[in-house]
Design a protein around this nucleic acid. Structure first.
Lengths: 229, 229
DNA sequence: TTCATAGTTTGATCATAGCCGAAGCATTTA
DNA sequence: TAAATGCTTCGGCTATGATCAAACTATGAA
């Protein structure tokens, strides 16, 4: 009768097979696009889009627009906890059914993401920029610091030209395979272009894979050192 | 696509508002009848019956037939855990909405349950019989021991007559107000009748309440001592 | 610009399932 | 035995919502 703690609303969200498939696919913390999730759920894209809206409105998912992609993640650990508890109850054949992103090892290593570097090395670059204090991530926003501007200029980038453009300078981009942020925005594009011009990298014409030359790999590691270097 | 761990089936069960009301009403571990749960859920009895069947089939509830009543309990702690997790997610106005059984204090103290003693004193009697090794509870079944037979005979019960009857001698009966077992079956009935004949108790003609005389109360406490006596 | 891709919205279809009342059992009471 | 109570089952109504195709928007690629 009286308004309960709305336990049914949330349960009903999980109660649809399609939506449950979506949620279980996201259980490992990765973020997936609407199309990927549509395939996971076994429904059409339009249907999945509706499901994803409902799940987001219901607070179970956290959407993240990324250019023409839209990534979805579980909202927080509580959601994952509930799902885990439900899976425990549904003591059945425990199949994980994870379908990881790019199968190709080369693609996982490095690839273009629209116009910037993605993959393991893209993430490495972004983390290195953070660790050196060149960029600062505040929530969704990423800002370039003064030392970062110096670094970019030293890297051979015309920062004045970039700053006049209307496109955002720095953006965090969720990596498809690593599921971590890497650097997008006009600076990300510029860095990629510059590395290409320097001969560090070349593109596989048949895929989005990015190939590093030997010297390019060395230079990259020197410019963007990882962890305790 | 492929058969998931059926997380959606269970979630769908919880996802209906009526069933969610039923489940939350059972969250404190008590057992409620179908009629009570129908009222809790705010639906008709026939509707509630359907819900209860589904919940039982789905393994969320454990039904227990009791004469013409049917009590329902949460199946186990896992179920309660999932519900609790869901309630946590649905961070809303946390209203408990418990509606305890008999309001009348006298009824809670002692009343007839069909033909035997129920209420606080009924539970006391049953526990005392257990503690003294007169009856042994094995799951749902309750058996009278040899010493228990002696005790009953000494109490003034014609055990030979009882044992020839087709009705079960001992049965565990779920107490309405205490939500614990008390003794039913032909022995429970015989004990009640005997206490009545002895003048220990008398029945309120307008309700199911059982009134103990002063001496009756003393004799009862002596015959069925509680705990560390 | 023009084309392609990703996603949303709309509209229509259709199946599921919640709901109730009435009839049917089963059990207890009288 | 007959009446009352507790619950289940059945039939029919209805509403919700899942689904897809097609049109539309937005972004990126050429």
């Amino acid at each position: 009768m009286k308004e309960g703690p709305d336990i049914s609303r949330i349960a009903a969200l999980i109660g649809d097979p399609g939506r449950a498939n979506i949620l279980t696919a996201l259980m490992d913390g990765r973020a997936l696009t609407a199309s990927e999730l549509a395939e996971e759920a076994g429904v059409g894209l339009s249907t999945a889009s509706g499901h994803l809206s409902k799940l987001s409105d219901g607070g179970l998912l956290r959407p993240r627009k990324q250019g023409r992609h839209k990534y979805f993640q579980l909202a927080d650990d509580d959601v994952a906890g509930v799902l885990e508890a439900l899976m425990g109850l549904a003591a059945r054949t425990g199949q994980t059914r994870v379908r990881t992103g790019p199968r190709d090892a080369q693609m996982q290593q490095a690839r273009v993401c629209y116009n910037h570097l993605a993959g393991r090395l893209g993430v490495q670059m972004y983390r290195s920029l953070q660790a050196q204090g060149y960029v600062v991530e505040a929530g969704e926003a990423v800002t370039l610091t003064a030392s970062g501007t110096s670094f970019a200029t030293a890297f051979g980038i015309d920062m004045a030209a970039l700053q006049t453009a209307r496109a955002p300078l720095c953006r965090a981009c969720l990596d498809w395979s690593e599921r971590r942020n890497h650097l997008a925005g006009s600076l990300g594009r510029a860095l990629f272009t510059r590395m290409s011009a320097q001969g560090w990298i070349s593109r596989d014409p048949n895929s989005r894979a990015v190939l590093f030359s030997l010297s390019g790999q060395r230079a990259f590691d020197a410019a963007f050192p990882v962890g305790a270097t």
